[in-house]
């Protein structure tokens, strides 16, 4: 028997089939991805998000009103009232004057969620290749699913980290957290030197812009100029401009003025073939396995490194260090700081 199929028809059906399959399996936007997202218990998620927000307010000594809660959770004021009533009957919060305060039970609940969130962010940053723009969103999802025991186990595997990749301390399993010491970048005076200790990852649009400027926790900043509507500062020798509103998302710790101002360091990728220099450090934006690998190879401050030869296609470049020849890509060499010395090495 020979089945006769009109080829035009078959092509049409085949193409439609492909489109349908794409619709189901497409990452993030496909039917399967949406279904798995929809399974989350939304009521509990709201409740936990509210506790987290209240804790954050307390931690930073900001008064917390009904409207700010509704705004941060993207729900109406009515829904927020109902949610807070529920939290109160559960004994997790109480009203003090006209602001909401966490009870001890509520605080420890919130700390548990925050611990899972920050441990997961640390995990994403160190052990996976997921980009920094996605950490917060994925951790927001994971914090409601992962048990504290699983998070503890994960933390133990990573050597019990104490900071998340944004520079926030991770609450210990006993629920301890160091006192909040930073101030917003916008509060610095002209001429002040400070170190970035934290970059707020919410809202995502502002975070994206801060990341695009190449700012990261641990960076030294020097405020050059400050007016009503803009703050101009140098970060590792690079000039940046932000509006004061954006600058509130960056938390800094003031440094004594006598600490030397860092110059913008040379990058390993700028080394010409045959040239030598001393490694000065690896940029903190290079993390996790990538960073460990580079350090294991000997890219630590003080190591003398020589650009040996270039691949036939121009990238990667082979470097000579500690008696071996190692090739790395330009995108990695851009993360390694070097210091050329005047005298011949």
């Amino acid at each position: 028997m020979l089945m006769v199929v009109n080829p035009g028809m078959a092509l049409l059906v085949g193409t439609l089939g492909m489109v349908a399959a794409a619709g189901v399996f497409w990452p993030k936007k496909g039917l399967l991805a949406l279904l798995s997202k929809g399974r989350l218990n939304t009521q509990r998620v709201l409740l936990e998000d509210a506790l987290k927000f209240l804790f954050d307010c307390e931690y930073k000594n900001i008064p917390c009103y009904l409207n700010s809660i509704a705004g941060s959770l993207h729900i109406s004021a009515d829904n927020a009232t109902r949610l807070l009533d529920r939290l109160r009957t559960m004994g997790l919060i109480h009203l003090q004057e006209d602001t909401f305060r966490l009870t001890d039970a509520g605080r420890s609940y919130a700390l548990r969620i925050i611990r899972v969130h920050r441990i997961w962010e640390r995990y994403l940053a160190d052990e996976t290749g997921i980009g920094e723009m996605d950490w917060h969103g994925q951790a927001d999802f994971k914090e409601h699913q992962m048990t504290l025991e699983d998070a503890d186990q994960l933390a133990a595997q990573m050597g019990n980290p104490v900071f998340d990749p944004h520079g926030d301390p991770i609450p210990s399993s006993q629920g301890e957290l160091p006192a909040y010491t930073g101030q917003p970048l916008s509060a610095l005076e002209e001429g002040a030197i400070a170190r970035i200790v934290h970059i707020e990852d919410e809202p995502a649009t502002i975070y994206a812009q801060i990341v695009a400027l190449g700012l990261y926790p641990g960076m030294q900043v020097y405020v050059m100029d400050k007016t009503e509507d803009r703050i101009q500062f140098a970060a590792n020798g690079e000039e940046c401009v932000l509006t004061p509103f954006f600058a509130t998302n960056i938390t800094v710790k003031k440094l004594p003025a006598r600490e030397p101002i860092q110059k913008k360091p040379d990058l390993l990728s700028s080394l010409k073939i045959g040239e030598s220099a001393a490694v000065k450090g690896i940029s903190p934006t290079c993390r996790g396995q990538q960073r460990r690998r580079l350090m294991d190879l000997g890219m630590v401050p003080g190591t003398i490194i020589t650009a040996a030869f270039r691949s036939a296609s121009g990238d990667p470049v082979a470097y000579q260090l500690l008696g071996t020849t190692i090739a790395i890509r330009k995108s990695q060499a851009d993360h390694i700081f070097i210091e050329r010395s005047e005298e011949k090495l």
């Binding site: 290749g129 690998r293 020849t325 190692i326 090739a327 890509r329």
Partner: peptide, 17 residues
């Protein structure tokens, strides 16, 4: 760019003598 996007990635290539 799809299913393996999240896996960790490093690069280094030793060029032995």
């Amino acid at each position: 760019r799809s299913v393996l996007k999240g896996e960790a990635s490093t690069f280094s290539l030793e060029l032995p003598p």
